[in-house]
């Protein structure tokens, strides 16, 4: 994963609430077997409306998206994060995110910034004509004016984002602990493992 410290540039001044994953990327785009190219399908239904922010040339390729509360609700499809990444979005700022979406965003190096509604209102206004900056070092969102909004983030997530760490590699390094846990379970709850003859076996390949 690419490390990310600062995301700076134009921002889609959107602010829409309860944007579900079907709006971010409609189901018909989910039939891919790769992570690339989904930007084309992103916000398809929104883009069908004339004058939408996503087709406004002022925000073309903007790395920041400003949205309303409960962004990314709905399905678990990681395609939502891939679609945002593919359209060049590196940070989403909203008053709240669905749990699954914020996890998916994080795993794809997209910074999900939670700020109160007043900050969002202000940012939407400023972003119409000005860039914004999300800085993980200082944990702030700033504008060319006096605005400076601080946000909080899980320190682990922040580290991973800033160092571009591969989460699977880090967990695999805990192999001993995982193996130890498995050995305990094999004793204490033997019915859980295939050895007990009840869990699904290996495929007869």
């Amino acid at each position: 994963m690419e490390p990310v410290t600062r995301v700076e540039g134009r921002a889609y001044p959107w602010g829409a609430k309860n944007i579900d994953t079907d709006i971010i990327i409609p189901a018909r785009w989910l039939k891919t077997t790769t992570r690339e190219g989904l930007g084309q399908g992103a916000f398809e239904s929104v883009r069908a409306e004339p004058g939408n922010v996503f087709d406004d040339p002022r925000y073309a390729g903007a790395p920041v998206l400003i949205a309303g509360e409960n962004f990314g609700c709905g399905s678990s499809r990681e395609h939502a994060a891939w679609a945002l990444g593919d359209m060049g979005v590196k940070a989403v700022i909203a008053p709240s995110f669905s749990d699954i979406f914020s996890g998916n965003a994080f795993k794809n190096g997209i910074v999900a910034v939670v700020l109160p509604q007043e900050a969002i209102d202000r940012l939407v206004e400023v972003a119409r004509d000005n860039p914004v900056t999300v800085d993980l070092e200082t944990m702030t969102v700033t504008t060319p004016f006096q605005d400076r909004f601080t946000f909080a983030m899980d320190p682990f997530r922040r580290d991973c984002l800033m160092q571009g760490l591969d989460e699977i590699g880090m967990t695999l390094a805990r192999d001993q602990a995982i193996g130890g846990y498995e050995a305990n379970v094999a004793q204490g709850r033997p019915w859980l493992s295939a050895a007990a003859g009840n869990a699904p076996g290996r495929a007869a390949a």
Partner: peptide, 30 residues
Amino acid sequence: DSHTSAHGALGALAFGIGTSEVEHVLATQT
């Protein structure tokens, strides 16, 4: 798949995950 919550009906702590997490579980079972 987000409707994995269904399995909670049997008392399983069940939840939907994204594809990166699918990969994480396949590789590490955690």
